[in-house]
Design a binder for these strands. Sequence first.
DNA 1: CTGTTAGCGCCTTCAT
DNA 2: ATGAAGGCGCTAACAG
Lengths: 334, 334
Amino acid sequence: MKNVTMADVAEHAKTSKSTVSQYLNKRYEYMSENTRKRIEAAIEELNYHPNSVARSLKQKATYTVGVIVANILHSFSTHIIRTLETEFNKQGFHTIICNADDDPEKERNYIEMLLAKQVDGLIIFPTGENLDLYEQMKDRDFPIVFMDRKVDAQAIDTIMLDNHKAAELAVDRLTAGNYRKISIITTSVIRNISPRIERIEGYRQALQKYSLPVREDYIKTADAEHLQDVLRELFEMDAPPEAILAANDIVLVEVLKYIKEKNLSIPDDVAVIGIDEVPFAAFFTPPITVVEQPKIEMANLAAELLLKKINGQKEGGSPTVHRMQPNLIDRHSC
Amino acid sequence: MKNVTMADVAEHAKTSKSTVSQYLNKRYEYMSENTRKRIEAAIEELNYHPNSVARSLKQKATYTVGVIVANILHSFSTHIIRTLETEFNKQGFHTIICNADDDPEKERNYIEMLLAKQVDGLIIFPTGENLDLYEQMKDRDFPIVFMDRKVDAQAIDTIMLDNHKAAELAVDRLTAGNYRKISIITTSVIRNISPRIERIEGYRQALQKYSLPVREDYIKTADAEHLQDVLRELFEMDAPPEAILAANDIVLVEVLKYIKEKNLSIPDDVAVIGIDEVPFAAFFTPPITVVEQPKIEMANLAAELLLKKINGQKEGGSPTVHRMQPNLIDRHSC
DNA sequence: CTGTTAGCGCCTTCAT
DNA sequence: ATGAAGGCGCTAACAG
């Protein structure tokens, strides 16, 4: 039961492979009504389906893009993936999803495997550690877009939130509510992951804007697994914070967990604000105020830029880092 | 700046393509220390990377599997995807993710495109509408595993929750809490999506077990967008339910939204139980009791079965539908 | 151990 | 309008 190939179709339709190929590529001008019909019939009868691997080998295009997310657990990532997949599908591209799990080694593997697979382009939430690879791709003009995180050494198109602004928005809201002892918590910052750094910077600058003291012991970073410890430290201080800025959804969840466990009340015992919208924010008790990222726009822009590169359109001297604006959703947790 | 190929490496190393190929496939027995070194050097120097499209064409294996989820918005789907991707990656397979969006046409397209791309296997959350395609694949012994939903007409390995049991567990818990007017809400059931049907069946049987009346007006189904209307109907009844069984996470979210809006209190005004664990359940006010699916196990089993099929191991007369057991997580919403 | 040869399934000049 | 021939990059006999 071997696979039916173009040759079989040609034979069946009493014509040649080339003509069948023409037919498949809809170049109907190059054939008579009659042969077309015969080919049609043969395809139908044999239940022929073109092999796109063979086609890709010849055409040097796979109509497949790779997406490597740093950590698929962030709801931000899954939303982005969803939108990207939809957009690429619209343009006839398949999407290979890879989860680097914040591990530079995995990222390196994925990049190499995807390149070996001849994907037409790549969207990466970069770990920032594989500079040599990024550089190679850049040098070869391989279509690539960075998402969410920037890599300083690289001049690669990058789509990022305006993280300073996001933190500022949060601090604005908090100070408006008369909270002065404001803590910020992010997930680990050891590898200098840019959005986390930037959010802390934004927080610092915003406090200064209001002439509020910046207390280093209010700035906490830790892995997801150690967030509870960090929270304990924070609340066992002599002057525990009155408000917490959770720098992403994972942190927010841990903060709310802690608060629930300790039976604290929001916002009376401690106010809470998050960066990243979460599905339960609106109907939580109390509803959680949050700074949201324009996820859809970000994903759409990423897809658009990548597709342009794939289609060989050199973008004019467009800016390399596209900063997207955050948006405050005011609810009742602060 | 053309691509460097095996031929270039061979030339550079003063040997032949076949030997280079041997080298790449680590069949070192077939070559001298010396040539090996030369090949190594040539590869390094030319920065050669094998083209896996060409290899796939020859070997008729792409080391890629496709996953078509019915609806990527269910947190169940994203968790499954995550685990599948991890497992497949461990075995050296890439994963193409597709979201059929509950649209049989999209599903058909994806299946056809993925087959054309010569993926080595497919995991599908089937819409249930493309019987001809399912059948073709089955007939060709193409490696395929269904997930979450069964298709009656097809004898294809399927991994499902024991949905009857899941509903029963929920009703057990509710009756134990002395709730007798129990409503069940699911998302739309028009296309006879098996888990939804089965959960309703399980609910019916469980009520009967307790000699509770089955009221048809307590059984509600609707699209996500119309869930709020359905909830309104329910609570405007003369005898509104005392407890709601939310048949999946999307329903649960809508139920909680409604309850918040109407300022009802859980469980005093209305008790709530969900099928599918959600990230916020534990620290919600009150914490939400939930019947959870063994997602990890389900995904692992799916990956394992598919890999076995891909590797040509005929499974013995194993059952076609694998039923996985749900688990009650008792919290305080009922 | 190494090289030669023949494809894998499709696309693409280039004759006819 | 149609077909023959060559090649995409790699693998797998089979000789030598």
